[in-house]
Amino acid sequence: MSQAAALIQFSGITKTYGRGQAAFQALKGIDLTVQAGDFVAVMGPSGSGKSTAMNILGCLDTPSGGSYLFEGVRVETLSRNDRALLRRHYLGFVFQGFNLLARTTALENVELPLIYRGEPRAARHAAARAALAQVGLAGWEHHTPAELSGGQQQRVAIARAIVTRPHVLLADEPTGNLDTRTSEEIMDLIVSLNRDQGITVLMVTHEPDMAAFARRVVRFVDGRVESDASNGEAG
């Protein structure tokens, strides 16, 4: 591993759902370090805990035990509000189901994180338009999700994730609902964000074709990290 402080450092992270006899341990002690600028694909069968780990990484969920350092900050000691602020300023999310606001135009969806950041209107609009242009949706600003194809909706979601210039982009099965051709377009977009803007990408996927775009592949099995290897061709 590198000498510099890691961007993300998981040490012995556990997550248990339920309690007593019904308790189910989804994560059984995860150690994982991610350096700034990396592109990590997280793979594994259903129920292996990869999404749970991703949600904890993204501060959408809290671990039951272990330690999580994000840029040197101990995340498990942060308050609910501070975790929200961490998401607001450092993280961007892309979900399998897009999770755009319904009946809301692409522009308004993309500018939403900037509203929470308190950016003035003009700056907000300029940034949102730039982000939409970057994902190839210039001219689609005033369309609502219902008027966009799945691939376009996912592009809007990516624009929303990157409009705040996050340090980390967390993508949970970003191509899970898309056909192969659209999936590859989305992956090209994510790769370029990682390569050209230096955004660290963590992506959960169960498709080897998609994992092939990453530099590094981490495999989860049964709540543990089974393997962690560089991807030869992407390196």
Binding site: A84, R88, L112
Partner: peptide, 17 residues
């Protein structure tokens, strides 16, 4: 629908309040 909307807002950094 609104619960999902709240989830989206929280995920992109809205504070609970």
């Amino acid at each position: 629908e609104r619960t999902r909307e709240i989830g989206i807002r929280l995920a992109i950094g809205a504070l609970e309040r």
